[in-house]
Amino acid sequence: MINEQQKIALVTGGSRGLGKDTALRLAEKGFHVILTYHSQQEFADQVVKEIEKLGTKAFALKLDLSNTKDFDHFVIKVQGLLDTEFGAAKLDALVNNAGVGINVPFASTTEEELDAMTNIHFKGPYFLTQKLLPLLKDGSSVVNTSSGLARFSFPGYSAYGAMKAAVDSLSRYQALELGSRKIRVNSVAPGAIATDFGGGATRDNADFGKFLSSETALGRVGMPDDIGSVVAFLCSEESKWINAQRIEVSGGFKI
């Protein structure tokens, strides 16, 4: 049976990158974590082990965010974990983090590529959150992952950036309509972060990293723990009066 003082968070795409760091930061705050992975279960299992070393429970579930037809089955699995492992508790936080990047010029972006971005970054989180509403506790927190590319622009990111702008708008509508249940909804917009996202260019390309740093007020690119700690804060009671906000975490990029 779960300790009533401890909480449960679901983090999509929690097996690597920003999702992994978010899951770990939540565990440090005492959250039990259910995380999802798309295909690389071994990475997810490693994150589970790291979380358990911090003294909280963790479970990994497979989820293809682009396939909404599987959401009902996924929700049943989450419900099963809540019933069997946590005594019929509900989720205290949902972090819609999973996603993939694309860098293709506007003039040559295909309908298939745009559909993929829509399904993964907008349609998926839209309907997954909808399906999970019965499992979200009143007064819980939803954090949607946006991107700095919804504010500033780089060539090749029209599809990705536009979807993240949609996420920012969606977050405000969710905050308005879920407010009657005291559910808070915010979006976090990372700047350039040194992970393997988008092929790892920010992390591995020294010249690109130098350019990004020169455009950032704090003089460096971001690291995963620059983001995870903010998301964990928004999931906690420490941020109980923050709602319907887009919080860019970019070190002051292009200001």
Rank of each mutant, 00 (worst) to 15 (best):
H121S: 11
H121Y: 04
F122L: 15
K123W: 02
K123Y: 04
K123R: 14
G124A: 07
Y126G: 11
L128P: 00
T129P: 00
T129I: 05
T129M: 04
Q130E: 11
Q130L: 07
L133F: 09
P134C: 05
L135F: 01
L135E: 10
L135R: 08
L136G: 06
L136F: 12
K137D: 08
D138P: 04
G139H: 04
G139C: 11
S140A: 00
S141M: 06
S141A: 04
V142E: 02
V143T: 06
N144Q: 13
T145C: 10
T145M: 09
S146P: 08
S146M: 06
S147K: 12
G148D: 13
G148Q: 10
G148F: 14
L149F: 12
L149H: 10
R151H: 08
F152Q: 15
F152V: 15
F152D: 14
F152R: 15
F152K: 12
P155E: 03
Y157M: 15
S158V: 10
Y160L: 11
A162M: 11
A162D: 02
M163L: 03
A165T: 13
A165L: 13
A165G: 12
V167I: 01
V167M: 00
S171R: 08
R172E: 07
Y173F: 08
Y173E: 01
Y173K: 14
Y173W: 15
A175R: 00
A175I: 11
L176N: 01
L176D: 06
E177G: 05
L178C: 00
G179C: 09
S180E: 09
S180P: 07
R181W: 09
R181N: 03
K182G: 03
K182E: 04
R184M: 02
V185A: 04
S187A: 13
V188Q: 11
A189P: 03
A189D: 07
P190L: 04
P190M: 09
A192T: 06
I193F: 10
A194F: 05
T195M: 11
D196P: 07
D196T: 01
D196M: 03
F197P: 08
F197L: 08
F197C: 11
G199W: 15
A201E: 10
A201W: 00
A201Q: 13
A201Y: 06
A201R: 12
T202D: 14
T202I: 14
R203F: 07
D204V: 06
D204I: 12
N205P: 01
N205C: 04
A206I: 06
A206G: 12
F208N: 09
F208T: 02
F208D: 06
F208V: 02
F208I: 01
G209F: 09
G209Q: 03
G209Y: 13
K210A: 14
K210F: 02
F211N: 09
